[in-house]
Design a protein around this nucleic acid. Structure first.
Lengths: 157, 157
DNA sequence: GCGAATATTTTGCCACACGAAATATCTTAC
DNA sequence: GTAAGATATTTCGTGTGGCAAAATATTCGC
């Protein structure tokens, strides 16, 4: 019969795909797991918690004019949470609050000199860690991985 | 001169590598970020927190004979933390504590029938989500990504 | 100038996360 | 056999992060 020729292995292909996705799903879980462990060590070394580091990165990326609302939005947190995290960064002397003169409701959060130094330390540490993690991959593979992951990120929303 | 031919661009190669690593490092950070946001939605849908889900996964992987110490060790947490998480899973009816008869100090944590059902739901949801995330990648790319990430995981410790 | 909108903080509540102390049990040394 | 130490788990105290709802302060619209 002709259908035998046209459809070679209908379940086979779908199953193959499912198997690949499943394998990747497990890899992601393992990666999340290992990543968590590694992140813990990283955070201990730099002396900040992850949410605190994320706020510092945000400030580093948009130097100078970041409001509390911006932070809450960019880090996907409620304003109340952002207040708490920034409070602790202020206590640590890495950041300071400055009220806007024009609109006295808004509060800018700025990196202090100590904060800048800390941020550089963090970035150096992060770079070092990624280097260590990728030492088994050659340049071509590195580029490939980056490309594939970037396409994954695009798929997120 | 011969050295001109042998060493084409000494700094260029190292710089190229550094650039690749840096790009990947940024991609990782973005991935962690987006992943966090996505995880939040995932957890809301399944009605558990991430630490709770991790414990459920652990129980699913080592069916039947998992002690509190095992959980603490496998999830990289202190015993005190594990106690709290398991407490809440017990409250939710997904898990139960059983004392060892021989050594009455040790406590086994076992998945209940409701817990098994929940675990299946979680896995289905996770599979669905990975499928959605990877829909832009073909089979070959999927395999490639999995292979590269696996080699990354190996490099962790 | 008065009510609605906006930006931030405060409050109250819960989940983690840890070390240290407490509890219960087992093992070893004598 | 029992006292001393080791082991497994929980309890306690403290701190961070997470949110919604209320409170506060300020600006905007009309």
């Amino acid at each position: 019969m002709e259908t035998d020729k046209v459809v070679v292995s209908p379940e086979g292909e779908a199953a193959r795909r499912t198997r690949f996705v499943q394998a990747l799903s497990d890899t992601f879980r393992a990666l999340m797991w290992q990543g968590n462990k590694q992140t813990t060590g990283f955070m201990e070394r730099i002396g900040l918690t992850l949410p605190q580091a994320v706020v510092m990165w945000t400030l580093g990326a948009y130097k100078g004019t970041v409001t509390m609302s911006d932070i809450a939005q960019m880090t996907h947190q409620s304003g109340a949470t952002a207040t708490g995290i920034v409070d602790r960064l202020v206590d640590a002397g890495l950041v300071e609050r400055v009220r806007d003169i024009g609109d006295r409701r808004v509060v800018y959060v700025q990196i202090t000199a100590a904060g800048s130094t800390k941020l550089e330390e963090i970035e150096a540490e992060r770079q070092k860690q990624t280097e260590q993690m990728t030492e088994r991959l050659n340049d071509k593979e590195l580029e490939q991985l980056n490309s594939l992951l970037t396409r994954l990120i695009v798929s997120f929303d």
